[in-house]
Structures are given as C-alpha cells and as structure tokens.
C-alpha cells in the first residue's frame, strides 16, 4: 500500500487521500465482540491464542457491543438466539462489519435438513460481509477471512455509499 511504503524523508510529512487514511485506520484496529456460540468458537479462541495470534492484526476482544467494530458469528444460530443476535447487531455503532464463520452460520451447516430449531444461515437476519467456509474452519482460514475483510475496507470510500 503506497501510503505506508513512502519513506519519511523531509520533515516527517506524508501526503495521502482522506479515504486512504481513514480506511487504513479502520482496518488496522478492528475490535471484535467476543461472541462464540459453538464449536467454531473454540477455533476462534485458538486463533486468538499465541500459536496463530490474532492480536498482531490489531484485533482485540471486547465484551460489549457498544465498543466493537466487527462481530464474528461463530457457530450455529438457533431460532431462540436469532432475536438476541439482531439486538446485538443493532447495538453496535457504525461502521460495523460481520464475519460469518463456519458452515452453520453460512447456510445451516450439517443441520439443514431436519433441524427444526436451527436458522439456516445468519444472513437471513443480518447482512454479512465475509463468509468463511469450513466445519470448523482452520485458524489459517479465519485469518484469511480477516485479510479479505481488510481488503474490502481498504476499497471503501467516504463519498460513494457501499451496499
């Protein structure tokens, strides 16, 4: 990214677009809401632990939605839980992003056929930015999902409204 590769030659002055600066600030410190539902939550915890560190990307777990930028829906969303997720989503301030991790929150997962209490995909109630497939996805896959989200944020613009 051109902004960061420039050498600071005279007087430590960098010239860049306002878009680039804001996007760079947003993607470098995505604070996540610590929200784990089921088995994928354990892989998310393993990603935050020291072997595949999440903190080096600036991702820090916050306990309340009012201070979080990104929510990683990891695990099966049931009908009882769906109303609560909608409420948490509405409590997050803008700009907010959603990563859907695992096949249960992508499309219902292994419970698609006879699950009478399973919501077949969290995108039926909230808009999703990145889908990470797997059952459960490896920590490397979740990191790639995060990098794709960073790429998406990098291309945002203040003037042009995205979907």
């Amino acid at each position: 990214m051109g902004l960061l590769d420039k050498e600071f030659t005279d007087g430590n002055i960098v010239i860049a677009k306002a878009d680039d600066l804001l996007n760079w600030a947003r993607l470098s410190s995505l604070w996540q809401l610590s929200f784990g539902l089921a088995c994928c939550a354990i892989e998310m915890m393993a990603t935050s632990a020291s072997h595949y560190d999440f903190d080096r990307f600036g991702v820090m777990p916050r306990p309340t939605p009012r201070q979080a930028d990104v929510i990683i829906i990891s695990g099966t969303v049931t009908l009882k839980m769906a109303t609560r997720i909608k409420r948490l989503y509405e409590q997050m301030p803008d700009p907010k992003y959603i990563i859907s991790m695992g096949s249960c929150s992508n499309c219902g997962g292994p419970y698609w056929e006879h699950g009478y209490h399973v919501l077949k995909g969290v995108d039926r109630i909230i808009p999703v930015d990145v889908y990470v497939p797997g059952c459960p996805p490896r920590p490397e896959a979740l990191l790639e999902g995060l990098l794709k989200l960073q790429e998406k944020i990098r291309n945002e613009s203040l003037v042009k409204k995205t979907a």
């Binding site: 049931t78 419970y111 006879h114 399973v118």
Partner: peptide
Amino acid sequence: LGYLHRCFEKHAEA
C-alpha cells in the same frame, strides 16, 4: 437453556 439446541435426536432418527 436452549440457545444452542440443534436437534441431535431428530437427526439421529433420520
């Protein structure tokens, strides 16, 4: 309880 009820017993019958 019940926020993660995933209907295992119904799946086992099918």
